[in-house]
Simulated scan of single mutants.
Amino acid sequence: MTDETDETDETDETDETDGADLGRVLRALRRRADLSQRQLAERSGVPQPTLARIESGRAVDPRFRTVERLVRAAGGDVAIGMPSAAPATTEPTPVPHDDMRDEAGRRYPAHLDVWEVHEPRDWPGAWWAEWYRLPPERYPLPLPPAAYEVNRRYRDNRRWCAEVRRTARVRRFSGGDLPDTCWRFVAELPDGELVGELRAHERSPLLEYGEWYPGMPEREMVLDGVLVAARYRRLGLGRRLVTALITEMRAAGIDSAAAIAEGFGIELLLACGFEIEARRPAALRLSPPRRRYG
């Protein structure tokens, strides 16, 4: 769940020019270390109000020792030297939502992921309560301008999902003993881990139906199956695999594809442009006989 006040950073809406850069760096360091103001204050021994003033730019000339303790507690380094001899340093990634403010004009916590709320589905508190089933005039509370996840486990999982979506690569596999009429696509992580796979094959409609009719394609694709590792499902990898197949088969002059699906597979194919055909057989399963007890 989210909370719009308990974790809000104690900062003013505007920065003083002299302390703006230092404040942004500290907020970026806190985000990288995933620390709230309270947590960084406890680690560094610097009072939280002092940290809040530095981050907001209100502390125009903070003591060097104070800044050093904060930076080191957040996992950063402080370097002093002549400009020509100063070692090259990499600044932490800026806080992406640093320009956003809550209804009281305060910044949102730097270490959390903040997103704008446009409808109930964007706000976990309303989503779990199924507000989206109500008309706007019946919402129990007004929607906040933004939301964030306080629970560390949920937040880490959200960032992990975003990283998988960003880095996973989908490609067509070729070579080996794979026949020319068999198509295989794989989804891989940067380290080469296989997390998804799609298999399909070409067929001739003329051979299937035994006769030719006007408009019959010369070739069509049959989707044999799409499989995504359990941990990586619901991240869009299945849709990327199907989309890759459609893109390449159309580039090869194949515009028609057939598939049999069940469960979530039906939703996946419908989202990728497939349509349900009533004349097609349903998915069937043969299970072993049930054992009788008694």
Rank of each mutant, 00 (worst) to 15 (best):
T2Q: 10
T2R: 09
E4L: 15
T8C: 11
E10V: 15
D12S: 15
E13R: 15
D15Q: 14
E16A: 14
T17P: 07
D18V: 14
G19K: 12
V25Y: 02
L26P: 11
R27P: 00
R27G: 02
A28G: 08
A28Y: 10
L29Y: 09
R30D: 10
R31M: 12
L35H: 09
R38W: 08
E42H: 13
E42L: 13
S44I: 06
S44A: 15
P47M: 04
T50D: 13
S56L: 06
G57C: 02
A59M: 10
V60P: 00
D61P: 00
F64G: 02
R65L: 15
T66D: 04
L70I: 05
R72L: 12
R72Q: 13
R72A: 08
A74W: 12
G76R: 01
A79K: 10
M82W: 13
P83Q: 09
P83W: 03
S84I: 13
S84H: 14
E91K: 08
P92R: 03
P92D: 06
V95C: 09
M100C: 03
R101A: 06
R101P: 03
A104R: 15
G105V: 03
R106L: 15
R107P: 07
R107T: 12
R107N: 09
Y108E: 10
Y108A: 09
Y108Q: 03
P109H: 05
P109F: 00
A110P: 09
H111D: 11
W115S: 13
W115Q: 06
E116C: 07
H118G: 15
P120Y: 00
R121F: 09
R121P: 00
D122S: 07
W123L: 03
W123K: 02
W123V: 03
A126M: 05
W127Q: 13
W127N: 08
Y132F: 15
P135C: 06
E137S: 15
Y139N: 11
L143D: 05
L143H: 07
A146T: 02
Y148A: 08
V150Q: 11
D156H: 11
C161W: 00
A162V: 00
A168Y: 01
R171F: 12
R172T: 04
F173R: 12
S174N: 06
P179S: 08
D180K: 07
C182K: 04
E188Q: 11
D191E: 13
V195P: 11
R203V: 09
S204M: 11
S204N: 07
G210A: 00
G210R: 04
M216C: 06
D224M: 01
V226R: 02
A229S: 14
A230V: 10
A230H: 12
R234L: 05
L235E: 07
L237P: 01
G238M: 07
R240H: 08
R240I: 05
L241H: 02
V242I: 12
T243H: 12
I246M: 09
T247R: 14
M249V: 14
A251W: 01
A252D: 14
G253V: 09
I254K: 04
A258C: 04
A258P: 00
A258Y: 12
A259C: 04
A261Y: 04
F264N: 08
L270I: 09
L270E: 14
G273Y: 13
F274S: 00
F274E: 03
E275F: 00
R280L: 15
R280H: 13
R285M: 12
R285H: 06
R285Y: 03
L286D: 05
L286F: 11
P289V: 13
R290I: 11
R292C: 08
R292K: 06
